[in-house]
Design a binder for these strands. Structure first.
Lengths: 118, 118
DNA sequence: CAGGATCCCTAGGGATACTG
DNA sequence: CAGTATCCCTAGGGATCCTG
């Protein structure tokens, strides 16, 4: 089991915990958002998220894969090529991801103000 | 500015980053979800999230407050009483929170299976 | 009751080097 | 290109004690 992650699933708790467990990682929501537009190669995702190291990106992608929301397709070529895409389960997250993009767009200004205040 | 948090807001990036910045903390989504039902006292939230220490809860609540999604009402009584509630801005997150609860409910079983596999 | 302040530790994650 | 493997460090967070 992933450490600290949903360790008490015997007790129901709140269903939201499940969703947070899947998309709650540091970069996961952003990765999934970018994948909504279609499959992306590792390097593309890396360039879209310059703040995330390749190491972290790999780890987050592995967990998303384990949770069944993204698919990893390896093309055995030289040089190697790997494409990540949303699974059907991942597609079912679209409504959430789209609402999050909407909300962010509407509140970007006040968030920037909040950050400057600190 | 909060460390590591949206440090490059000069460059637009993805709007979703804003939303993740606000609700992306370890316990924030859960806190907000519980507050949807109405105001809650600190102790109540703490009991709803036994895994979170009081210290962490306080920190997360402060950030949610700074971001303007929750309101902190202090009743000057003995013993002290503090109630947290969603602001109007926080209420606007409801559609997202409700979708997340839905998604979690539908995928709780497969998530448990994924966890057992590890 | 609802935190604030300190001390302290570990595991999350960066940097670098290497490989199929 | 798309990772994996190591080393290494720091800051995130637990535990404890204190207070308005």
């Amino acid at each position: 089991m992933r450490k600290g992650d949903f360790e008490h699933y015997e007790e129901p708790g709140c269903p939201t915990e499940v969703t947070v467990g899947v998309i709650g990682g540091k970069w996961k929501t952003l990765i999934l958002t970018y994948l909504m537009a279609g499959p992306r190669r590792f390097g593309e995702i890396s360039r879209l998220l310059p703040q995330a190291s390749k190491r972290m990106l790999t780890l987050q992608l592995r967990e998303l894969e384990e949770d069944g929301v993204i698919h990893r397709e390896v093309y055995r070529e030289v040089p190697p090529k790997v494409e990540y895409s949303l699974t059907e389960c991942g597609e079912s997250l679209k409504p959430i991801l789209l609402l999050m993009a909407d909300w962010g767009e509407k509140h970007v200004d006040s968030k920037i103000e909040a950050l400057k205040r600190r």
